[in-house]
């Protein structure tokens, strides 16, 4: 039997997906804006953060409300816990994207354009894909996809490490200003963090689906 309050769970789920989509969009916009030298996109990404924050707060409120009023157990309870954690992760993803946008803005305004894109393009695509996958594995309840995300995250980590090596190299000092170097480094770090959060979400989806920690 479906209870009237089960509708609230569906709504919550939809809201979580929406939050995921939004944070994915922020990530996508900020990285694309940086790579395409498009300040407007960067600005747009920069402005979306507040909206994501509100959404995250709504979700956590709804979770707590449902927990205290409806007495959920088993998969319902896991969904709520996952929603709480995943919404936090999505919000952090959006935050990282926000800071990418911030750095990008600074880079683009001071340097004019990104001189050495390094592997940022590949890294960004990967991160976007991871975020997207983490959402779809939640939507499709696909546990295999979730495990795949855990693996893919290492690739991003590796690229980030390479960036770190490159940028800390003497050679790069001639090529880029210090500001550009640090900002690029931070952007790379942020993308790596986004990958980590996507990985966390994948872990939570695994917990949601099979109940294991």
């Amino acid at each position: 039997m479906k209870r009237y309050f089960h509708k609230e769970l569906t709504e919550l789920k939809n809201k979580l997906i929406l939050l995921g989509e939004k944070s994915h969009e922020v990530v996508h916009l900020s990285i694309e804006g940086l790579l395409e030298n498009n300040i407007e996109k960067v600005n747009e990404a920069y402005g979306m953060d507040d909206y994501v924050d509100v959404l995250e707060m709504e979700i956590s409120h709804a979770c707590i409300r449902y927990m205290s009023l409806r007495g959920p157990v088993s998969s319902d309870l896991r969904l709520l816990v996952v929603a709480l954690k995943a919404s936090k992760d999505f919000e952090r993803i959006a935050d990282e994207a926000h800071s990418i946008a911030q750095k990008s803005y600074r880079l683009l305004t001071t340097e004019g354009s990104l001189k050495n894109a390094l592997n940022l393009s590949e890294m960004g695509t990967l991160a976007c894909q991871l975020v997207n996958d983490s959402i779809s594995c939640f939507v499709e309840e696909d546990i295999d996809k979730a495990f795949l995300i855990l693996k893919k995250d290492h690739e991003i980590d590796a690229i980030n490490q390479k960036h770190f090596d490159t940028l800390s190299n003497e050679a790069s000092r001639d090529e880029m200003s210090d500001t550009a170097r640090f900002n690029t480094m931070l952007i790379s770090k942020s993308i790596e963090r986004i990958g980590d959060h996507a990985k966390n979400i994948a872990g939570e989806v695994i917990f949601l689906l099979n109940g294991d920690q």
């Binding site: 709504e11 919550l12 939809n14 929406l18 989509e21 709504e58 409120h61 709804a62």
Partner: peptide, 10 residues
């Protein structure tokens, strides 16, 4: 994606 936006408690 079209989800209504009011906070649930309200």
């Amino acid at each position: 994606m079209n989800v209504n936006f009011d906070i649930q408690g309200k």
